[in-house]
Amino acid sequence: MGSPPLFYKWSSKILPWLSIVSILILGVGLYWGMFYAPTDYKQGDVYRILFIHVPSAILGQSIFMFMAICGFINMIWRAKISGMMLKSAAPIGASFTLLALVTGSIWGKPTWGTWWVWDARLTSTLILFFIYAALIGLHSTIEDKTKADRAVSILSIVGIAIIPVIKKSVDWWQTLHQPSTFTITSSPSMSPDMYQPLLICVIGFYLFFALLLTLNLRNEVLEREKNKNWVRQLFGGLS
């Protein structure tokens, strides 16, 4: 999988299945959450934003951790594909972090009475979005792709420090934001009728990330390897 031609060949087979499964699971999760899940006794129906907000926030942070791992692999083993993965994952991570911020802001209006507060969780998530923007900007400013990959690797490894801050922000500071919905150490505090569709939405979001990453990565592989023999052979019919 570490070799670009092997990835391209393998991804061609998996892409149609990944598209079907991710759309199906995401559709089921959202439909269940929006129409079938019971109304919250405290917040009413506005809590349904949770089915988009929580998975996007989890994904925004997970993608950054994934990028830090790719950055580490790129720095140690200089695997070509890890650098390509870094570049391909950054815009997706930025999109989902932005989605978490926007949906959180929309949710804040009816529940907190304001679109935005400089709360620890919100501010640290905004910083994560700025780090994503910096990663994308940094990569596009360096012409040499190998050097750009290394610079982005370093920034993603250093930037990983923001993740525990986001995670623990609700415990370390007095915040308006509620405690984490998902924790490894304790059982969920919400009803299974709400938790089950949320879990399906989270899985659907992860699958959709895999789909978007595969699409972006295939493009990146083609662009960087366009002068290689395997690409010329593959697209030989085009000329």
Binding site: G44, I52, I106, K109
Partner: peptide, 11 residues
Amino acid sequence: MDGNGPYVWSC
């Protein structure tokens, strides 16, 4: 919904 539908649908 309970009046908050536009918030949910806009998300």
